[in-house]
Write a protein that binds this DNA or RNA. Structure first.
Lengths: 220, 220
DNA sequence: GTCTATAAGAGGATAGAC
DNA sequence: GTCTATCCTCTTATAGAC
């Protein structure tokens, strides 16, 4: 009956938070089965039974960590402004997603792992949250299309591709490090990656457009 | 001393193959730690000790399955022809990668899982093979750039993005199914996904280029 | 709230018959 | 080559003292 907040004392909240952070790291490295309560409790700096005082079992802890990851992951979209310039709006969105991948690579990988394995532990929350994000995006996108401000690309497929590209540098970090020696923890590398993504998404990889004057629109 | 081929009898090869296929599915669903010899042997239709007659332990089996996945995964690039049309060559490459994702989603997910977890079990083979692919691609890309046939996008980052986009529909299948109700097993959905990727990569998402006539190149 | 000790069970690996 | 039975380790979870 001391300092409380949502029915939990401060020390409870602090410990719960430490455990969730440790769990996120361990689960992102080894998956649900590979992450052990032993390793998590050691990383969090307390004993295994004490950890189980906060979360009644491993699965509950996994879900708590996953929900925390989802909060980080699905927040920053903010709102796309349909009245504003599409290029500026989308650039902002892409930059936010890239920042997230850079600052929370473990969260990105834990999320990716959950999806990769079939998204069986995320609960209906995930579907609801993702669905709202995707449909909001699609709605704004269709609006821009109706005003002829953007290309005739399917909005859902586009958001999938933006997610794929912006999360790739965190999720496939090992491969990228193998081939370049760098990760997006490296600021210069991060900036280059970001600008390349933005260039590809907005302009594609065809040469600088001048040879386009001889004809009509593409047949693609 | 009957029918042999690389020092193995036919029945040995056939069983080894059955086991590797079963292992690929199980490991792709559950990861290394989550995939059990029990489930693999059951799926392959033999007993656990019999499985261990073919592979001395779980880790050896994992590596064998992973190597098989890599063979599938890294083969189809064939060769890009620097003398040919870039758009046609890249379209062909993208289509091959998309076909792979469609036909071997479990292989895609097992590969993705291995990278996600840090690529610690793949051995130096992976680095060598991937490095060769990436540098070959980059060399041809630079050649096209020198002839001003393609945009000034970094070749390595471009191949990362192509991989990210083409593998996304297999690796994030659960999420895509959640949001669209479909997977690329659905032929029409697959074709739409493919054409959207190709459109984005070649032309980007800006509108149909006419408003470009008023000025100079982008400041991006 | 936090710990030590331990129960209970899953899963990898081996022994040895056939 | 393939099986049944078994060993043993690792890991989750609980009991109960402090």
């Amino acid at each position: 009956m001391v300092e409380r907040k949502n029915g939990e004392t401060r020390i409870q909240q602090k410990n719960a938070r430490k455990i969730i952070d440790a769990a996120t790291i361990e689960f992102s490295k080894e998956g649900f089965r590979g992450g052990t309560l032993d390793a998590i409790s050691r990383r969090a700096g307390l004993s295994k039974p004490n950890l189980l005082y906060y979360f009644r079992n491993k699965h509950d802890l996994y879900q708590a960590a996953l929900n925390h990851v989802l909060d980080i992951w699905l927040s920053p979209l903010g709102e796309l402004d349909p009245a504003a310039d599409p290029e500026e709006q989308l650039r902002g969105y892409i930059e936010k997603k890239m920042d997230l991948s850079r600052k929370h690579p473990a969260a990105s990988r834990m999320f990716a792992n959950e999806i990769l394995k079939g998204a069986n532990n995320a609960g209906p929350d995930l579907e609801a949250k993702l669905g709202e994000l995707a449909s909001k995006f699609n709605k704004v996108w269709c609006h821009w299309q109706s005003e002829n401000k953007v290309a005739q690309v399917d909005g859902l497929h586009l958001i999938f591709m933006i997610w794929a590209m912006t999360q790739h540098y965190a999720d496939f970090e090992a491969q990228i490090k193998m081939l370049t020696g760098k990760t997006i923890a490296d600021k210069a590398f991060y900036e280059t990656a970001k600008e390349n993504i933005i260039h590809i998404i907005f302009d594609g990889i065809k040469n600088g457009h001048p040879p386009h004057c001889d004809g009509m629109a593409e047949d693609v």
